[in-house]
């Protein structure tokens, strides 16, 4: 899926002070690409990710997903986009504590059954767990799993509805470097083997450079955009 932003601008108001989070960001992502967005805290990289992920609306500018302009005023269409085309991976994993591993992976399918029966959904959730190497942990609750395991489950969950684009907001931020590397290679594998488009926000410039196109952002502006 191609992703395009045109003059994407976002202001916040902190009291009376205007904060520019994004300043006329224009970028293009081709089918099957892996992009890392790098920048210091407060540079606007997460805002970019959230707007592309239909969780936040821009102040100005447009986003095109697969060539279609996103209508940020239409809540239902945003829900449909998130359901059918997008998968999220968060820094803090965000698994639901009441549900075990396989149920967490299955959770997004509940909102997007697509004619799949409960057992079919369970089956594909198990397959996704196997893909991230955690089928043996299927019945464990999040509280019983390590950070690396939780993030793998979260990635499996992001894949639940077979999205075209995966948005990962500092997926290795809460992990030690070895575990972080294994998560990055898992994402790389998804990009190469499954052909998923991935946009990842990260601090880790070195790793990012090795595996993807890197976009550097500073004060809401794109500073460099290197292949």
């Amino acid at each position: 899926m191609t992703v395009e932003t045109r003059d994407l601008t976002k202001y916040y108001w902190m009291g009376k002070e205007k904060v520019v989070a994004l300043d006329r960001v224009t970028l293009k992502m081709e089918e099957g690409e892996f992009i890392s967005v790098v920048g210091p805290s407060g540079s606007g990289k997460s805002t970019l990710l959230n707007i592309i992920g239909c969780l936040d609306a821009p102040t100005k500018g447009e986003v095109y997903l697969a060539g279609w302009k996103v209508d940020y005023r239409n809540k239902q269409s945003l829900v449909r986009l998130r359901r059918n085309f997008l998968g999220f991976v968060f820094q803090t994993f965000n698994l639901i504590p009441a549900l075990n591993a396989v149920e967490n992976v299955e959770y997004p399918m509940y909102f997007n059954k697509g004619g799949r029966s409960k057992s079919e959904r369970r089956e594909s959730a198990m397959k996704l767990l196997a893909m991230v190497g955690l089928e043996k942990r299927a019945n464990h609750l999040p509280s019983e799993l390590s950070g690396g395991e939780l993030q793998r489950i979260a990635i499996a969950r992001a894949l639940a509805n077979d999205p075209k684009l995966i948005l990962a907001d500092e997926p290795t931020g809460n992990l030690d470097s070895r575990t972080g590397k294994s998560i990055l290679s898992l994402l790389k594998r998804l990009n190469e083997e499954e052909g998923k488009n991935i946009i990842m926000v990260t601090h880790d410039l070195e790793s990012a450079k090795k595996m993807s196109r890197v976009i550097r952002i500073l004060d809401g502006r794109i500073m460099s955009n290197e292949k």
Partner: peptide, 16 residues
Amino acid sequence: TKEIGLSKALGASDFD
């Protein structure tokens, strides 16, 4: 709240 936000990010509608 966080779980609700998460559910929405994962595709839940207001009605869900």
